[in-house]
């Protein structure tokens, strides 16, 4: 099992490099993961998306798609990609401490 070190603490990661235990997540950890993903600062629109994703996951057990993010989070697609370059659904899920979205097989 892969781990990442944050403030001297080893946090377990899953096969996709996302948090293995959702309970490990906190806002500081989110900032650390974001920095590793090339997002130096999490602004309030970032948090709006992250919190929306966590709420949906809590209720439904899977992170929302980009289409749903756009429709329901109040952030348009273009902005989503500016906030989370290179794949907002996957990247925001990672920062939000959620598993990689299942998408479809």
């Amino acid at each position: 099992m892969e781990t990442m070190n944050i403030a001297g603490k080893a946090i377990e990661l899953d096969a996709d490099g996302h948090l293995a235990n959702r309970n490990d997540w906190n806002e500081n950890l989110a900032r650390e993961i974001a920095a590793q993903e090339g997002i130096p600062e999490l602004t309030s629109p970032h948090w709006a998306v992250i919190n929306f994703m966590r709420t949906v996951f809590e209720k439904e057990g899977d992170a929302p798609s980009i289409r749903r993010l756009t429709k329901e989070s109040g952030v348009d697609t273009k902005t989503l990609y500016q906030l989370f370059p290179k794949g907002p659904a996957k990247r925001a899920a990672k920062i939000a401490g959620l598993p990689k979205p299942k998408g479809c097989i």
């Binding site: 289409r67 998408g103 479809c104 097989i105």
Partner: peptide, 8 residues
């Protein structure tokens, strides 16, 4: 374009 698609 985007997932999911029929017959992936």
């Amino acid at each position: 374009a985007e997932m999911p698609i029929k017959c992936p």
